[in-house]
């Protein structure tokens, strides 16, 4: 969980650093939906939220990579979180949107079903990810946050969008093809 690097604003960096002290996980989160599951994403990593726009597919990339978009002159990749989490794809609606996150200075977009809210999750409301065993992959989940009577899955977005992983998967794709 080294998330201080990507953030430029000094103050923000400080806050982020504070968050990390002693493994604190609480703070402000942006929540969004995939199906009926609500995920929470550390707000300091969110660059902006944009509506759906034309996505140029990029050949020979893993299938969760939808392609690239033009974010005001920058070409940034967009991934489909549903595909990434092995969920079924659905039709895009008006609520479907792209959350642009910034990781290590590079921006990436993630398509989600809809954005929900920004909320505070206190440290004591964060539980460890339970082990489900078997097929359930929890490697992208940092913990379980509780807000009121609801449960949010706290996403390790760095891991989800890790560049290396894109590259790794990509070369894996290549190898199978070879």
């Amino acid at each position: 969980m080294s998330e201080t690097t990507a953030i430029t604003d000094e103050q923000v960096t400080q806050v982020a650093a504070d968050l990390n002290v002693d493994g604190h996980m609480g703070g402000k989160f942006l929540t969004f939906f995939l199906d009926d599951e609500e995920y929470a994403l550390e707000i300091l990593k969110v660059h902006e939220i944009i509506g759906m726009m034309p996505i140029t597919p990029v050949p020979r990339t893993p299938d969760f990579v939808l392609g690239v978009i033009n974010l005001r002159g920058k070409v940034i990749p967009v991934i489909n979180l549903r595909t990434k989490f092995e969920m079924d794809n659905v039709e895009w609606t008006d609520e479907t949107c792209i959350i642009v996150v910034q990781i290590d200075g590079t921006q990436m977009g993630a398509v989600v079903d809809k954005v929900s809210e920004v909320l505070d999750i206190a440290d004591q409301d964060v539980d460890d990810t339970p082990a489900f065993g078997g097929d359930v992959n929890t490697e992208y989940i940092l913990g379980i946050g509780k807000s009121g009577d609801k449960v949010k899955l706290m996403l390790d977005i760095d891991k989800v969008l890790a560049t290396e992983e894109l590259a790794d998967l990509h070369s894996a794709v290549k190898q199978t093809e070879d």
Binding site: P54, V58, R60, T61, L166
Partner: peptide
């Protein structure tokens, strides 16, 4: 952002704003 892609050297914004 994506890593090295075989056969593709980069992206560019086209006249219609698409990539």
């Amino acid at each position: 952002s994506i890593g090295k892609l075989e056969g593709i050297s980069g992206g560019a914004i086209l006249g219609d704003g698409h990539v």
